[in-house]
């Protein structure tokens, strides 16, 4: 692209991402996947879910920022997208609060066939 073309406003706005950056992101994402699978074979107790979610979130941020160009995108698009996750957080949090509060109102299960092998004994 010659220089005079860039003078035209509203044209030539594309900013192709360098290939090494894309490839590097892919490599990091693959590493993180291996890490997630590897950590599953260790016992971390109750923080298990937390670790998994942190790794997944790091991966999601990488995908969002680089593959989806969010790092170079318009702030409004970023706000929309991040905003959706904020509302998802609120939604799940409050539903969980509610479910915790009412978990004792469990209606017992009656007469339900059980398929464990040892039931035959």
């Amino acid at each position: 692209m010659s220089a005079h073309e860039n003078a035209r406003e509203g044209y030539d706005f594309a900013h192709p991402l360098p290939l090494p950056l894309l490839a590097g992101t892919f490599v990091v994402l693959t590493m993180l996947t291996i890490l997630t699978v590897a950590q599953a074979s260790f016992e971390f107790g109750s923080i298990d879910v937390l670790i998994v979610m942190v790794i997944a979130t790091v991966k999601a941020i990488l995908v969002g920022a680089i593959f989806m160009h969010l790092a170079w995108d318009k702030p409004f698009n970023i706000i929309c997208f991040i905003g959706s996750f904020v509302f998802v957080g609120l939604f799940i949090m409050f539903t969980l609060f509610d479910s915790r509060a009412t978990v004792k109102d469990d209606i017992p299960i009656l007469d339900d066939g059980i398929v464990t092998a040892s039931a035959e004994k």
């Binding site: 997630t36 599953a40 971390f44 998994v52 979610m53 997944a56 995908v63 969002g64």
Partner: peptide, 21 residues
Amino acid sequence: LYWHIVDMIWIYLFPLMYLIR
């Protein structure tokens, strides 16, 4: 963008479904 979000959802689905210890 659509394809990446489908990927992103799988990124969460995979550990939540397959990797419960």
